[in-house]
Amino acid sequence: MALKGNLKDFSFIQLLNLVNLANKSGALYVERPGESARVLFHNGKLEYFESSNEKPELLRSLKDQKLITAYQHTLLKERLEGFSDREAGIYLVNAGYATLDQVTTALEEDYAKKFRALFDWNEGLFRFEAGELLPENKIPVHLNLENLIVEGARELQEIEELKAEIPSLDMAIKFTDRPGTDIRNICFSPTEWQVISYVNPRNTIQQIATATKLDEIEIRRVVFTLLQAGLVEIIRPGGVPLAIPGKNLPVRNPEENRSLVKRLIDRIRSI
């Protein structure tokens, strides 16, 4: 089945959330004029990232993380000319330049940094190719998406987007019964904790904003972050849906109601 669309309709954060929650494996391609990127996921974790602007390079990542000096970088680049990332990694570990953990962490930091740039893409085509595997000559990482998602949601500046997600501040929020993410892996900011402390079906979002001294955009941003993290859901204030007075069934007692629905079932079956 296709998983494709445009980032203007389905934001990058939402896409990551989907990959994360569904534990997807495969390649996500995103492209806009003059730029494209490929992200590989394995069981909902980021495994590899490359963009048309910059291919990942192990030695550069290690230099950026200050695991090797600029001089070592120049020497090793010459020595490891033609080596794949995997071969270079094995060489560096065996030669004592870095441990396997340090290599993995350096790549994770590098991927996460470059990957974050995609959060600013408000438009661009995307498609997910399920089952696409990491090339054997690359070093896989296993980067959790939860914090990237929360961070990305935090950075989402588009007020229009926020207004579309949370159209009214007169609604309340409550904690979901089944949070979509493992909350132990999520780091909240002090402001987010402040808002969390007021989450209660009786408090409207506007009231929480007043209590926490947040403006309309800030409160929307925090609530959006909590929504994306799967921690809260929006409800009517008081926690009870506003029912329109009137009867949902025209008959009185439960047995009659049940009989009526059974008659409907029989009729639909016979169509």
């Binding site: 494709k4 203007k8 389905f10 329109i244």
Partner: peptide, 18 residues
């Protein structure tokens, strides 16, 4: 997929009606 957000909003609206 560009209609999913609207679908969610419609769903929430109808849930609130009854």
């Amino acid at each position: 997929p560009e209609t999913f957000r609207e679908a969610r909003s419609i769903l929430e609206t109808f849930k609130a009606y009854a």
